[in-house]
Design a protein around this nucleic acid. Structure first.
Lengths: 193, 193
DNA sequence: CAGGCCATGTAATCTGTTACATGATTTT
DNA sequence: AAAATCATGTAACAGATTACATGGCCTG
């Protein structure tokens, strides 16, 4: 359901083709919800059949077509309805936590290597999130700018801050995960097996 | 792949039936990786066909059978191999982050309600994680006790601590998410739309 | 003898990933 | 002329959820 909402959410701000949506997810919102093209294109067709979006065909050059989608009224309603409702979090699937539960059966050196790479991966993600947060605070991303066109000027900072806060939260979680992994390394070293 | 490893990891400590594995995931490791019975039973059959586990049939009462699985040597190897290798984290799917990105289009009151329920949910989860962490530190869970039977006594505390650290990490992440949501409420209130 | 727990599954559906396929347009 | 980018998809598989189905055993 959430990918559907991600697409509706973007289309609510700016009509886009499947290709643009795919690129956008990869570049920015993809840091909270990602999906490959092969999932996006069929879903758009289905959403069109459901009547929540409609396509306008555009011709670029002579033969190259693109389908530019926009929300219908049903789509608007579905998005608002979803956004204003609390949805319980899905069940937990945390691979590194699971791996750590069984890490006491491998050598200390191997365990430390796994945790070190994990910490580096999470720090790297955190840096990306922080960069995006800062760009949002500076009103420096295309989609935010388009969003602000339809909002009264005195709300611009509040909207930017609320979106930046999403990425700030993700950054903090990633830093917390990296710190957790380094503590685990400390545990492993303090009492090597 | 991870559910497969969760099952291998438990079976490495104690031979169990599908029902026991299902209950165990629901009760404890389920807090890091959960799955319904309908996913576990077919997977066990498949893993048996793959030769990583083998079943012994037990008869309880007259007709009621249970299949008690244990690891084969191939299973041992697969588990160790997986545990000592770093696996990049899967792509991000965070529904509440996505919802927050579009929360600026609903009323402040609705937004605050969603975030309040989310914070409560995460605090609730954190409490469960903390409880499990404390039980592990006290060596007070059945599976840990069985694990410790096959480890030298001087390593018991280290093993318990490393498993407790998994749940401590999950608890801290949940608390962080709750704090994030409350900050978002603050943002929404400070500049209501 | 009723209610809860033990025990194993199937069916249908939805969601997500990886790999492949095709061809036009634009830029260097 | 080659390389990068724009553009839309299909196929096969893997992973996860929800609902349903069946029946025996154990305790009060």
């Amino acid at each position: 359901m959430s990918l559907r909402m991600a697409l509706l959410g973007v289309l609510d701000i700016r009509p886009s083709s499947g290709y643009e949506l795919s690129r956008f997810l990869h570049a920015s919102a993809g840091w909270v919800w990602s999906a490959p093209q092969s999932q996006i294109y069929p879903l758009l067709r289905r959403m069109e059949a459901d009547g929540v979006i409609k396509a306008e065909l555009q011709v670029r050059g002579e033969r190259l077509e693109r389908r530019v989608y926009e929300l219908t009224e049903e789509g608007q309603v579905e998005l608002r309805q979803w956004a204003r409702t609390f949805h319980p979090s899905p069940t937990v699937h945390d691979p590194i936590a699971l791996q750590m539960l069984f890490l006491d059966t491998v050598s200390t050196a191997d365990g430390i290597r796994v945790l070190t790479e994990y910490a580096a991966e999470q720090d790297d993600r955190a840096a990306h999130y922080e960069h995006r947060r800062d760009r949002l605070l500076a009103h420096d991303t295309p989609l935010l700018r388009e969003r602000l066109l339809t909002a009264p000027r005195e709300q611009h900072d509040r909207i930017a801050q609320s979106k930046a806060h999403v990425f700030d939260g993700q950054a903090r979680l990633a830093r917390e995960r990296a710190a957790w992994a380094r503590e685990a390394i400390g545990l492993a070293r303090s009492n090597p097996g």
